[in-house]
Amino acid sequence: MTITHGISRGRVEILQFRRDRTAVVFTFAFPALLLLLFGTIFGDSYDQPGVSASHVFSASMIAYGILSTAFVTMGAGLAMDREDGTLKRLHGTPITSTSYVLGKLILVLALSVAEVVVLIAVGVLVFGMSLPDASHWLTFLWLFLLSVVACSLLGMAVSTIVRHARTAGAILNVPVVALQFISGVFIYPPTELPHWLNAVASIFPVKWMAQGFRYVFLPDGMKVNEVAGQWELGRTALVLGAWCVVGLVLCLVTFRWSERDR
């Protein structure tokens, strides 16, 4: 029953999102626009044959697209539902908190899939990025799922500090933008950053997301530009898995149906 209600809630969330044309446009257009700008401005080539900065940004920006879509959408959406009374009304229905969260995750998963498709299309069609082989797509699958779940749960947890829905976007985008600069998304290679910034970035999931997607789409020789000189897929899985657990625990501790429950 919980799963059924969650799926039904997910359909409602998707329909509501589709009706907000402004949200649809900006959710998908902004990361793609940034990719076009970075890929065009920094179009120089690396020592690796056939690899340009635009290819690197095309791979790395997938991490930004997921973080922006999952973290911000989940956090802002929950803050809005709490402020306008949606959560309070749902609390009086058979929908449980688990069903509600599942519905939000379905929305975020659908948006993240669409976002990633747009970014890969820009990378391939505009900048000539090559698509990976089958084995790399398997890595892409688990990396994508762990990234979406971790970012969504963290967005839900952070939404508890948002007092007003109108300020949600500004508050949630602060860590999003900051992490892009220290995690090897906007600044590449990450070895150009101070050692202590790399150490800070390694604590958070974005660094591992970006590094993982670079493994998927770039030649193996590009690993020399990473901080450890390796792709570190095992550590990537462990860090993202740990953040999924941390996000889930925080959600269980902080989830409230209304402002008065705080």
Rank of each mutant, 00 (worst) to 15 (best):
A110Q: 02
L131W: 05
E115G: 03
A165H: 14
V113D: 08
D84I: 13
G221T: 06
I161A: 15
I203T: 14
P190W: 00
V72S: 10
L252H: 06
S135K: 13
I62F: 02
S99Q: 02
G155R: 11
R82D: 06
S60W: 02
N225L: 12
V185I: 14
T69D: 03
C151D: 03
N173C: 05
S68V: 05
G85P: 03
L78M: 15
L87C: 05
M61C: 06
W243D: 00
C151F: 15
G169E: 05
N173Q: 13
G184L: 10
Y215S: 03
H5Y: 13
G103A: 09
L250F: 08
A76P: 00
V72T: 13
F181H: 04
L111T: 03
P94N: 08
D84C: 08
I66V: 12
T236P: 00
G123T: 04
V177T: 15
D44C: 05
Q230T: 15
W243G: 04
I3P: 00
F217S: 09
F144I: 09
A70T: 04
V216T: 01
I66M: 10
L172D: 08
W142M: 05
H5N: 14
V116W: 08
W257D: 10
T73Q: 12
S99G: 14
G39Q: 06
S112R: 05
H164R: 15
A134S: 11
R166G: 11
I106Q: 07
T73K: 03
S112P: 07
V224H: 13
S112H: 07
S202R: 15
A76D: 10
V25K: 11
F71N: 04
V253H: 00
A150L: 01
V206M: 15
G6A: 06
P49S: 03
F255A: 02
R11I: 12
L35Q: 03
T4E: 13
Y64K: 01
V224E: 12
H5P: 02
V118Y: 05
L252G: 11
H55Q: 08
A168L: 08
A170I: 15
T27P: 00
L141S: 11
I7C: 00
D261H: 03
I120L: 04
L87Q: 10
L35S: 00
L37T: 10
G221H: 06
A199S: 14
H164A: 15
Y215Q: 07
A199H: 06
L154D: 11
A70Y: 07
V200N: 11
G221E: 13
L37P: 01
F71L: 13
F57C: 07
I62W: 04
T167N: 15
S130R: 14
Q16P: 00
V117R: 05
P94M: 02
P31N: 06
D84S: 11
L193I: 10
A178P: 05
P205K: 09
S58V: 04
G212R: 01
V177N: 14
G92H: 06
F140L: 02
F144R: 08
L35R: 06
L179D: 08
D261S: 14
S97Y: 02
T86H: 02
T69G: 07
E226M: 10
A53H: 04
F144D: 01
C251L: 13
A63Q: 10
